[in-house]
Design a binder for these strands. Structure first.
Lengths: 203, 203, 203, 203
DNA sequence: TATGAATGAGGCTTCATTCAT
DNA sequence: TATGAATGAAGCCTCATTCAT
């Protein structure tokens, strides 16, 4: 009796979860608000009870998730560990996020991060925040002599993040096969590629 | 008399060029067909004489440009030069393309390549073709012992292309400063980062 | 304890008073039921405990006030005084009403009396009642030889009431300045204009 | 052949005329844009080809008509005739307008002039212009000694216009009977009432 | 080839009202 | 009495596309 009722927060969550599925399936622009409501099993208007607009639903999904990442980046930066490991932590976090909730990640990548011209513009500052956090990690690595100094930290951050996002995109659109093993292996490959470089070493 | 008339092909070109400016400025979804016509200084319906639909205008812009890149990748792959130089050739081509026609490149990146859910889907095979071409170059590099073998060629291609696209996106949305010097320097940085790796070397 | 509780009637009054402020500020159609509730500091649904609908709130405001006027008109008609004074009594009542509660009068004029296509229709009979009351006063004036007989009483009533309402409207929309003095002066001017006429008299 | 085609201007007119009928019948807020299109026998979107919005249709109807009235007021003011005749000219113009096109006048009065809180606000300045024109006529009458000086010209203008509008409203809502004869008689009655006054004169 | 008037489907949002607690 | 979550109908506007000339 006590637990049989859905609270307001749960209903809100219900709608957000439904939105993830619908956005992932049909795309943000292609889906209608009624699709979200139907998927959530609630009335049309209820979406507008909890969110100001269709945009705000996506906003919420993005911000909730993205803030976790920027927080992680900040956290990792403060830790006492080799820069390589820091970058691996970030890679792990992102790839694990995809493993745990590929639909949500698809939405964030496809509809926000990579849709820079429409929705991305709105969140450019938040996105930039993550890039800057990564750049700071690189910078600290350079100060500690772990990272070469002839590549600017900002450029390095872009290359690193760009590589990660491209891999995610490959998985999303099935250009590369995805699975537990692939995800795990990719963590190593990203760090090996970006930190170690593609060149074959004589040593 | 003979030269005062614009030929059909020229009119078509006029519309395509106008479309680039309008798509770059307003985005594909935000602009109307009439905006293209206005920008081109032609009548509304004429766009439909030369193109089946608004989509086809963007399709044309993308294909015309993208085919040049896949052609270049094929061409470069066949040349007898170090893999590093091959990758640099590709990087050069892309960054020079942006330098010469930033609006067109913006449209292709923002509206097609990174709009994977809408136009990207349509052109997925063509886009994949470029990735595969790059992967082949990496593979040949591995065969020749220039590229390490513990990173799969497809993964390496993604990291490489992802880094490039992320840099382009940074320029487009002014997350990184752009200019002649930056573009030139970026060619080196991409290759240094991806091939050389970010690690500081003792040697 | 006994006095700290608001009675039902008081709550109802609270809502009505809030409605006046909200209707006056935003207009009946532009405001939402929740605006009224917010203004009254009560819960959304409570408005529906005391009123069947949003319409009924306005209906109530109108009827409560308008009935006072028709009552006054009846009352005045029965008094033994010159017709001019009767008309002045009515003018006084209306202008004083505006002075005492300009927001309520604004609502009644703007949202009911002058909104003939929506609420006016509903209350047409009640509104007509007032016109007829005034017409009767004119008629009695004609019978007593105080009012010229070549203007029909109904027409005279319309001219009289129309002039009053136009002055009210002018105040409401600040086409004419309003204040204590202006309100007082207007009472005389209305009667002088309508009864005395605008013509300059030689006498 | 030459006359069988409807020109663009005629189509626009077609829509405006249909709008008058629909607005008069259902009221501006109650009718849908599709009602206008249906009444005009054109496609939904065509209304938006000729007008920016539903509002603009009403705007156009109002402005086209109202400008005629302000023009007339200006014109009449410049003529060399007794003030009484000037006011009669204005009254004639308005009542004739109603006689010729009662639906259009109903729309203007009910949906704009008297709907001061919604649409009226938009046109307040234009409406005010007419009042001021009438006030100027009264003022000139006062200067020439034809109109009493103890009633301000602005107040007199309000009383005069208010009386007219109230009569129109009475006809519109059938509070007073309307016909050729009534309209003609009303012209005299308005002037007699406002200029002559309701008082019975001993002379 | 060229024009631009004409078409009409589609979707977001608002908000009065109901109802379970 | 009191609350506010839940419902869902209704309508304006956009704009890609067609078509008659």
């Amino acid at each position: 009796m006590a637990t049989s009722k859905t609270t307001a927060a749960e209903k809100r969550r219900l709608i957000l979860d439904a939105a993830v599925r619908v956005f992932a399936r049909q795309g943000f622009h292609t889906c209608r608000v009624s699709d979200i409501a139907d998927e959530a099993g609630v009335a049309y208007g209820l979406v507008y009870h909890y969110f100001r607009s269709k945009d705000e639903v996506l906003d919420t999904l993005f911000r909730d998730r993205w803030s976790l990442m920027t927080a992680l980046i900040e956290d990792v930066d403060g830790r006492d560990m080799p820069t390589r490991d820091k970058l691996r932590q970030i890679t792990s976090f992102i790839f694990d996020s995809y493993r745990h909730d590929p639909e949500l990640m698809k939405v964030i990548i496809v509809e926000v991060t990579r849709a820079a011209n429409s929705f991305g513009q709105t969140h450019l500052q938040e996105i930039r925040g993550a890039y800057e956090g990564i750049a700071r990690i690189v910078e600290h690595g350079q100060e500690r002599g772990e990272i070469r100094g002839d590549v600017t930290s900002q450029f390095a951050a872009m290359a690193f993040y760009g590589a990660i996002e491209q891999v995610l995109t490959s998985w999303i659109f099935e250009l590369l096969p995805f699975g537990e093993a692939e995800a795990e292996q990719a963590k190593t490959l990203i760090v090996e590629t970006i930190c170690g470089g593609l060149d074959a070493r004589s040593a």
